[in-house]
Design a binder for these strands. Structure first.
Lengths: 196, 196
DNA sequence: AACGCTAAGGAGACAGTCTCCGTTTGTCAA
DNA sequence: TTGACAAACGGAGACTGTCTCCTTAGCGTT
């Protein structure tokens, strides 16, 4: 035992190469055809057999989770930036939700498996979502404490509605301004209240 | 010519019977398995060949449109009731949106083809959606005129967000209270504003 | 009763998912 | 080096679902 964990062997070189190649190709393919595209086609584009693809990523969700893991950095960076700027809690929450919404638009059709991951809690995507809900809850609680967010609003609902907004975006002639518009609507609601 | 429109023949008795039977069975099947279920299975359950089903309803959307047409009465009745009660425009809008949200939950997965119908405007569902958007716009404009809805909110966005809410509902452990909660969020937003 | 034409049925082409198993290949110890 | 072994590969093929095409059945009319 030369320092590596006993019982766990390093993956073979070709396996690692194939895995990377699949991810690379899938990223491109999903970007073009949406996350519901043909997996066999991904395998073909990567120059591997279907069996190889399914061994590395047993389900579509596993593949998706790996792709999102690669993008996690980007969201994390935004998170840091938001925390650093920290003007008021409401602005921070709004910016975080906008970042989330953009994240969920990374691939066409992405919101669907994310929603799925929240209902049946045995998906490789579940953990990611749970984490982001927790983060959302942090921002939300701060804003509520500050008095700039209404009580009774729950982080999970908020997260779901942001996902839903991303889902809706692909209908709205796909312009990013309508995404922003709907997020504003989520913040302020359609009603003009004098509030209590 | 005995009063019937010339050039258009009455459908044959068996054709009509089959069509009705398919609708009846599809209603039940979709209610159980969602709108993405197997059409061949619907045909089998109805005791007809696949060809018969596809002749009557060339696409899944056609079948869906026919099913929704049968339910139109229900929504129309609610619409009348809302108009009759007419307390204030804001309440009316909220009740209308709630009715819409419930309507879009009639079958599991229904929001997806509805959203689709809005992006590519050549679907048998497009007309239905457009009509409901117009209705929404009526309520919205009244509320805006009354001063109880914010300016700048667009009916189409509102309709889409209601659809999105129905889409989100199926994740939220499917309890109807969370649907109501999200609709409230849509009305008031998460922010606690003193408004201008 | 016979005939013409609408509609039914279902076989089959096609596309996608996913598994299984014979074959290849990287790795490590001798 | 070489050989042995496990790890990984590839792709044929079973299965499911969509949708079309063409033959057959039978409705409605004369």
């Amino acid at each position: 035992m030369s320092g590596t964990t006993p019982g766990i062997r390093a993956p073979r070189a070709d396996a690692r190469r194939n895995r990377d190649r699949i991810l690379e190709v899938a990223e491109q393919y999903f970007a073009e055809h949406g996350v519901a595209g043909s997996l066999d086609q991904v395998a073909k584009n990567a120059g591997v057999g279907a069996g190889t693809l399914y061994r590395h990523f047993p389900t579509r969700e596993d593949l998706l989770a790996a792709l999102l893991a690669a993008r996690e950095d980007h969201l994390t960076q935004q998170l840091e930036a938001i925390r650093a700027d920290a003007t008021d809690a409401a602005t921070a929450l709004h910016r975080w939700l906008a970042a989330l919404a953009e994240w969920a638009c990374a691939f066409d059709g992405l919101p669907d498996p994310l929603r799925e991951a929240l209902s049946e809690n045995v998906s490789p995507l579940t953990l990611t979502c749970q984490g982001y809900i927790t983060t959302t809850d942090g921002f939300l609680a701060a804003a509520q404490h500050e008095g700039s967010a209404r009580k009774g609003v729950r982080a999970r609902d908020l997260f779901l509605l942001v996902l839903a907004t991303s889902w809706a975006r692909s209908a709205a002639m796909a312009d990013d301004s309508s995404l922003a518009g709907m997020l504003d609507l989520l913040r302020s609601g359609w009603a003009r209240t004098t509030d209590k």
